[in-house]
């Protein structure tokens, strides 16, 4: 094989500079700053700071409030991930049965789903509008006086529904293309070997979908934990008081609303460690299994 090479040794470095500087400016530098300031107690009025050692961290560990938010984050992430993956899988399986071979349909459907996500969040909020929202009315019909942004449970429900709704299209597209890449003859061999569609799915289709599913699992966990910030912010309507929130939202709330920069930095360092663990876990697992060919 022929190896392409650079004649000028500085050229590759030069080409990397833009990417590297973005990483440094937007990741390493703030990360380093956060780690540093997590050991200080900032004056709320901006008059200097005092070194407090690990106090910000011990505060987190002892805070009942923090524990409550952490548990909500766990539930929220688990429910959102589970629902958006399973609903998307169900839809993809149904679509796959219909679309087998019909290419035009498939492309059309993909387009619709590719356009939807940015619009979805906004629409979701309209659905739960206190006076006009159709979902609020729908719940009211069953005697559930749905109070978005006021009742803890109701707000949590709405957040989960909108977060799930927003993520389903992405999962759907990945699952559908995963399903369509399973060789037709393998499915047909299964058709001859097993007369139960349910068993065929779990014995043959799903294992072959496992690489896709695992990839999506990680993506969805990350999404639920970090990318739902906007949804949570909109849903609580600026009233964090009795409303549920995730850890990421609390970082923002304590740092920028509560002006506790030290505590907020410590929280963000905890989250960074979490992401690191998640990433290592992902690479380990991908290396080890789920590659058949």
């Amino acid at each position: 094989m022929k190896r392409a090479g650079f004649t000028n040794p500085w050229l590759p470095i030069l080409l990397l500079v833009p990417q590297l500087s973005i990483i440094v400016v937007f990741f390493y530098w703030p990360a380093a700053w956060a780690i540093q300031s997590s050991f200080y107690l900032q004056d709320p009025f901006g008059f200097g700071s005092t070194f407090v050692g690990a106090e910000n961290y011990t505060d987190i560990a002892q805070s009942i409030e923090y524990r409550k938010v952490a548990w909500f984050t766990v539930y929220f992430t688990a429910i959102v991930t589970f629902l958006s993956l399973s609903i998307a899988l169900l839809l993809a399986v149904k679509a796959d049965n219909v679309l087998r071979g019909a290419k035009t349909y498939r492309t059309l459907l993909m387009w619709v789903y590719a356009i939807a996500p940015p619009v979805a969040g906004f629409l979701g909020i309209m659905f739960f509008d206190q006076s006009h929202g159709p979902l609020t009315r729908f719940f009211g019909f069953f005697g559930w006086d749905f109070k978005l942004g006021v009742d803890y449970f109701d707000t949590a429900t709405a957040m989960i529904i909108v977060a799930v709704w927003k993520q389903i299209p992405v999962n759907f597209i990945f699952f559908l293309s995963g399903l369509q890449s399973i060789p037709r003859s393998v499915r047909e061999a299964a058709l001859i070997d097993n007369n139960s569609g349910f068993r065929r799915f779990w014995d043959v289709t799903f294992p072959l979908l496992a690489p896709t599913a695992f990839f999506l699992l990680i993506i969805n966990i990350t999404y639920a934990m970090f990318d739902t910030f906007g949804i949570i912010d909109t849903m609580m309507k600026g009233e964090p008081g009795a409303n549920p929130m995730t850890l990421v939202y609390k970082v923002y709330l304590d740092g920028f609303r509560g002006n506790d920069l030290g505590g907020s930095s410590a929280q963000s360092v905890v989250l960074m460690v979490l992401v690191l663990v998640l990433t290592i876990f992902q690479f380990r697992l991908i290396e080890r299994r789920i590659h058949y060919t």
């Binding site: 393998v186 047909e188 299964a190 097993n194 007369n195 294992p207």
Partner: peptide, 30 residues
């Protein structure tokens, strides 16, 4: 009648083996 209930066996051009099963499992699945 469903393919699985016709008591037939088929061999495909690209073999169509189940990639996630061992040889023994592939043979025994039916």
């Amino acid at each position: 009648v469903d393919p699985a209930d016709r008591n037939i066996a088929m061999v495909f051009q690209n073999y169509a083996l189940y990639p996630h099963m061992t040889v023994a499992k592939n043979m025994g699945y039916g």
